[in-house]
Design a binder for these strands. Structure first.
Lengths: 313, 313
DNA sequence: GCATGCTTTGCTCATATGAGCACTACTAAT
DNA sequence: ATTAGTAGTGCTCATATGAGCAAAGCATGC
């Protein structure tokens, strides 16, 4: 009888379990109604669980994989880990879902007093598009825009700041320029300089992760980064970029081209209380693992398959 | 936020709910570990349930439909109601499943001191075949055997008593005979009389239900019951038989042919502390409802579809 | 500016609950 | 029979928990 109570007892257990778990009656109430002692009721309830009659499921009604989220949080010491179930593994679908989830997370985290920092990227673009409500927090662009489609980077800023109802601090510049001199010149521009001065005030930052191995990031494709540069950085072990911060598998940061980047620095990243990465998909797994290893992140929004790969390896 | 907490909160709730429900930590332990107050933990756990993150399922691992069992028990005031899920609605499959379930129930209910009473019927035959263990309780046949295949009725007694390891009290006679005189003669036989004397000692009885509308019972097909008798009884409203006790839709008992039946009487049925019917299938629904209405039963073992029909109408 | 509700928080105190124990009722072996 | 062994039961007492409350934040109105 250890494994399976008889059918009569099963029904009795079910009755008690229903009263207790579904109708929130106390063991004592049930005991009075059934004529059993409260101890007996308690033991039957224990048996209800141990015999498998009562099953407790913990799952989000809205596609958040809570089990993986919790595991991810504990494994990588994150404060905010959100793993969503994405039925498809098409990049666009993943990005849309991650974006909207990150948007929900932001709406939850941000208050009027916060200052939000953003980088660019397709996932963040999806996030910006899904947002429809935000507190009146400051909005700061943390990096120049990489790749040919600079509009999207600015579109993120425009949309997010419009929803927050504030003027954004923007950076009208590429992420990487050809030489340090040019970078100095750009950083001297009043607009840019003012935005850079906001970095220290940022309380919540959201960034996407770019992958260098495989090469699937806007930065690698940047014209200012010629094949020789790229080759050298790959040899140095760079596998990921977060903003313009380049990271190796072990999580150490490569500063070789810092002087040519128009973006928040590693130290400034680390000074922000809450830094959240939004990224997913098979090609980005290695890069995400690297950025996690760097210790910059306090949060991660990713898809279930990626979370499993991160936890599995 | 009433309906859906943000993803960050969902993860927090999931973490707490996991700790509490799956790892049996107290709210106070969780509060200490997370730095929240125990009140906060309690409120988050409430939210876990109300927001649908925690779902509690009550279902039997062994095919017993506990929800229906409990409903049936309360609706018809039964002590033992067991509803089993039967995938097929073929009579044979239903009977086999009901039989084995009734057997489990018997093994659970019976002790050495009990005296088990049995009628015949295909479902009880299935029960007898599925039994493989019983206490050494007395075994009493409660009714003569109807229909052409008298062997099965005796086979039930043979098998059950063999498993219990005792000598059974049997009735070597048809259920209905052609006239009262013949019945008196049969009842006078020492064997039969001794068995009848056991009826008052029976503590647990199991019987099957025969349907008269539609006509699907061994008794209706009995040779001793000629078409005229049958017609008269149907006109009197008989829709079911339990042993040789004939019942109408309203649950009242028709005694017209009592003097021609070799079986336990209505009054004797009612004197047995625990009377359980085992029956199911679409054709028997009306009959089962009638026998339930008679108030003779303390228990019922049936299939899910029948239970739903009983509860629905 | 200051009232005004409304939510959130942690408190007190009565109540519910669990751990461990002693007691009974069987079982099974000597 | 006697004896130990093994559930099963209900107890005591320390602990966990819930209901209801008061204080603190917080938005919103005038």
């Amino acid at each position: 009888m250890a494994q399976a109570p008889g059918p009569g007892k099963q029904v009795q257990i079910a009755h008690i379990a229903t009263q207790h778990y579904l109708q929130n009656k106390t063991r004592i109430e049930i005991a009075n109604e059934t004529g059993l002692s409260r101890f007996k009721v308690g033991r039957l309830l224990d048996e209800a669980v141990s015999s498998g009659i009562v099953k407790i499921h913990i799952a989000s009604p809205s596609g958040v994989r809570l089990d993986l989220s919790v595991q991810l949080r504990e494994r990588f010491g994150l404060e905010h880990a959100v793993v969503v179930d994405v039925p498809s593994d098409a990049d666009e679908v993943i990005q849309a879902k991650l974006g909207s989830t990150a948007g929900d997370l932001l709406r939850e985290l941000l208050t009027d007093e916060d200052v939000l920092g953003l980088t660019s990227g397709r996932t963040l673009n999806a996030m910006a598009r899904s947002l429809n409500e935000l507190p009146k927090c400051g909005v700061v662009q943390l990096a120049g825009v990489a790749g040919p489609i600079q509009e999207t980077g600015l579109e993120i800023m425009r949309r997010v700041s419009a929803i927050a109802g504030v003027r954004p601090w923007t950076i009208y510049s590429p992420l990487v320029v050809s030489d340090a001199q040019a970078a100095v010149g750009i950083r001297r521009q009043p607009d840019t300089r003012q935005t850079f001065e906001q970095f220290s005030k940022v309380t919540v930052a959201v960034g996407s992760v770019g992958s260098w191995k495989p090469e699937n990031s806007q930065m690698v494709k940047n014209r200012a980064l010629d094949p020789a540069d790229r080759e050298k950085l790959l040899e140095r072990g760079v596998v990921a970029e977060f903003g313009a911060t380049l990271v190796t598998d072990t999580g150490s940061v490569i500063h070789d081209i810092d002087d040519r980047c128009i973006a928040i620095s590693e130290a400034q990243w680390r000074a922000i209380p809450t830094v959240i990465a939004v990224a997913g998909g098979p090609t980005k797994t290695r890069a995400i693992r690297a950025v996690l290893a760097s210790g910059i992140l306090k949060g991660l929004v990713t898809d279930a398959a990626t979370a499993e790969r991160l936890l599995g390896g």
